[in-house]
Structure formats: structure tokens, C-alpha cells
């Protein structure tokens, strides 16, 4: 498979995730869209490391670190969201405006 096929899919996937993260107001769905974007980046990392990098390990190592970060991010994000949901019975980010000036 040519490299351009993978990077095209990855770009479209990232665009979808970006649209969702900006458009949706449910905090859980926003986290899901961020996960989609991180996965698109991972596809890019692995595709480029397979085709262009002088050292094919490099992209895979970075993908491992991105996965670690994504797991940490999702656990803390969902914990924050649960704490908010316990107080307000809602996870709509428009209603969480206590810190708004």
C-alpha cells in the first residue's frame, strides 16, 4: 500500500475528530473525539516510520508513548467528568461555567 493512502485516511480521521471535539457539548463524546484524533496521529507515526524513517523503530516507540498518554488522559478526564456529574447530573460542557469570568 502506498504511504499516501494511509496519510489521507489519517488526515480525514483527524478532521472528523476535530469537528466532533469542537461541535459536541457532551464531555464524554469530546473525550472520544480526542481519542480519535490521537489514533489518527498514531497511524501517521507508524506509516511514516515504515516508509520514510531511517530507523523504523522510532515511529512505533512514539506511538507507544502516545497510547500511554491517551490512556492517562482518558482516565483522569473521565474521573473529572464523573465528579462533575455527581454534583450537577449533567455532563454538558456548556453548563460547567463556574470558572467563567
Amino acid at each position: 500500500m502506498p504511504l499516501s493512502a494511509f496519510v489521507t485516511v489519517s488526515a480525514v480521521l483527524f478532521g472528523m475528530g476535530l469537528y466532533g471535539a469542537l461541535r459536541r457539548t457532551n464531555a464524554i463524546t469530546i473525550l472520544m473525539c480526542i481519542e480519535l484524533m490521537l489514533n489518527a496521529v498514531n497511524i501517521n507515526m507508524i506509516a511514516f516510520s515504515r516508509h520514510l524513517s531511517p530507523d523504523p523503530v522510532r515511529g512505533q516507540a512514539f506511538a507507544v508513548f502516545i497510547m500511554t498518554l491517551a490512556a492517562a488522559e482518558v482516565s483522569v478526564g473521565l474521573a473529572i467528568m464523573l465528579a462533575i456529574a455527581r454534583r450537577r447530573r449533567a455532563v454538558d460542557v456548556n453548563e460547567v461555567n463556574t470558572l467563567k469570568g
Partner: peptide, 19 residues
């Protein structure tokens, strides 16, 4: 256009050593 590249692949052992 992106260069075609040569499609090298890293084994799990390589990845473990690098990490």
C-alpha cells in the same frame, strides 16, 4: 507527492530494545 519508501519494518525485539 510522498516518496514511495522501502517498507522496512521493526520487529518486537527491536522495539523492546529501543524502549
Amino acid at each position: 507527492p510522498l516518496p514511495a519508501g522501502d517498507g522496512r519494518t521493526a520487529s518486537l525485539a527491536d522495539l523492546g530494545k529501543a524502549l
